[in-house]
Amino acid sequence: MTPLEVIFWIASAVILISAIMMVTRRNLVHAALFLIVTLFGVAVYYVLLEASFLAVVQILVYIGAIAILVIFAVMLTRQVTNPGQLFNKHASLALVMSILVFIGLYLALSVWPEFSAVAPEADTAAAISNLGTAFFVEEDGQPVYLLATMTASVLLLIPLVGAIFVARQKE
């Protein structure tokens, strides 16, 4: 077992266990904290996959923004702890469905020839600069992802405006 593999298994365990913990918590603040732990585990994955830019973004955007937003929402709705039933009446059926989806995904993937592929050697140090140029710089006169970047920024702006409008307290 290489140190990377050890880290991988620890990260996997953290992701799955904290995810299960999150789903089953009665206290929503606890659930949000377990979500943060899960997201942190995913960030570790990104590091293992040598996508360091995404790892940083994962921590900044997810843990720094989204998770905090969720905690605020929990607090504002004043339903930190659920008084009644935690799960709805379809909970057992939902559990079966989820397991079936997992099995289905596993079966679908296992027949795929690349399922057990091994990571090829790659100059991942250059990946960040490649990503940066892919986002903004033209390549052979063609802005490969420039349009997608711009669209994404607009896509981010409009829901935020909409969210403010929806949530605005009317006089």
Partner: peptide
Amino acid sequence: AGLFSIGLYAVLARKN
């Protein structure tokens, strides 16, 4: 896939 299934379960089963 496991993470996806756990998320799905939260979506389908949790009341909140």
